[in-house]
Amino acid sequence: MSVLGNFNYVIAITLSMIGLYVLIERGNLIKKLVGLNVFQSSVFLLYISMGKIDGGTPPIHYEGIAPFSNPLPHVLILTAIVVGVATLSVGLALVIRIRDAYGTIEEDEIQALDAESGGTE
């Protein structure tokens, strides 16, 4: 058990921490989105792992096949993957618009430009 037995979960947690770290640490908006996506993918792994049963077969109903994996988390994650793709594409579209408007996709430069133009306009 311990670390090796929970290998999937260790990977999921590591990935989520890497994702969050990149998201917070990087100033480049594209890299932020990459971090966000890694973070979301770690959750997919968490869900998929919990559906797997030791020695379980794929969940196809057939006589004589006793333990099969739980298909529900997998189906849920199909939905979550679609959500993740949609989020990423909206995010990337926004980055394109930001680049058009500001001429940069570095967070600190955008903030500097906003501070320069001052006030609310």
Binding site: L23, L36, T87, G91, L94, R97, I98
Partner: peptide
């Protein structure tokens, strides 16, 4: 645009 991006990141988290 930038406000929306920030909301996207925090909202997704």
């Amino acid at each position: 645009l930038y406000a929306s991006f920030q909301y996207l990141v925090l909202g997704t988290i």
